[in-house]
């Protein structure tokens, strides 16, 4: 694709805002619906939004969608403000955005696999950052940060991301073709 991944023009301003609002609303909505989940693992399908917006509109859009979307979701639910988790969510959206130069389109198998690989890297970096920051802020040890925070968060986010991001990419392909952007 000939998109410039670092661009931040009008299009990026609008889609970063849309991504953040969507992530916030869907996080809030899925919390309200109390979706069934396995054991103590919460089902958080909304995490696919910043990842997909990163893949579709670039890393800055992905970052703002994740960072601001998490703030909005927490503000709606009354969860307070956890800046290191907001930054972690931002990174989770940003890193898939670096896949753009490698994508040939939004529906061929190779592009979908590449996007999924970047999604996994994004989750590891984003949730890794937030979990490790807990060591300095909460004073927990590495084992607790890894087992108590990173694994539960990263596992569900990876599963959500690798399933829903390709579905959204295929659905978005029709719009991308129609708008020619």
């Amino acid at each position: 694709m000939d998109k410039k991944w670092y661009a931040f023009g009008t299009r990026e301003v609008v889609f970063a805002a849309l991504g953040a609002a969507l992530y916030g609303v869907l996080s809030f909505a899925t919390n309200m619906l109390a979706l069934p989940a396995a054991g103590n693992i919460a089902l958080r399908p909304a995490v696919c939004i910043p990842m997909f917006f990163g893949v579709a509109f670039g890393p800055w859009v992905g970052f703002i969608s994740g960072f601001l979307g998490n703030i909005i979701g927490d503000a709606l639910s009354g969860w307070g403000f956890w800046i290191w988790w907001d930054v972690g969510n931002g990174l989770m959206g940003m890193i898939p955005g670096f896949a753009i130069p490698l994508l040939a389109g939004y529906r061929d198998a190779k592009s979908l696999v590449i996007a999924d690989i970047f999604v996994i890297v994004g989750v590891v970096v984003g949730m890794g950052f937030s979990s490790l920051t807990e060591i300095f802020t909460s004073g927990i040890d590495f084992a607790t940060a890894f087992g108590g925070y990173f694994i539960p968060a990263a596992l569900t986010d990876v599963i959500n991301g690798i399933i829903l991001v390709p579905i959204l990419m295929v659905a978005y392909d029709a719009i991308a073709v129609r708008t020619g952007r």
Binding site: L18, L22, L26, L35, I49, I163, I167, A171, Y172
Partner: peptide, 23 residues
């Protein structure tokens, strides 16, 4: 878990794509 996430698509996809079209 995977089947449940996949079944969220009918909810997540229309909202997202509709928002992008409006965007």
């Amino acid at each position: 878990l995977i089947a449940q996430i996949r079944k969220m698509a009918p909810l997540v996809v229309p909202v997202t794509i509709n928002a992008i079209v409006g965007g």
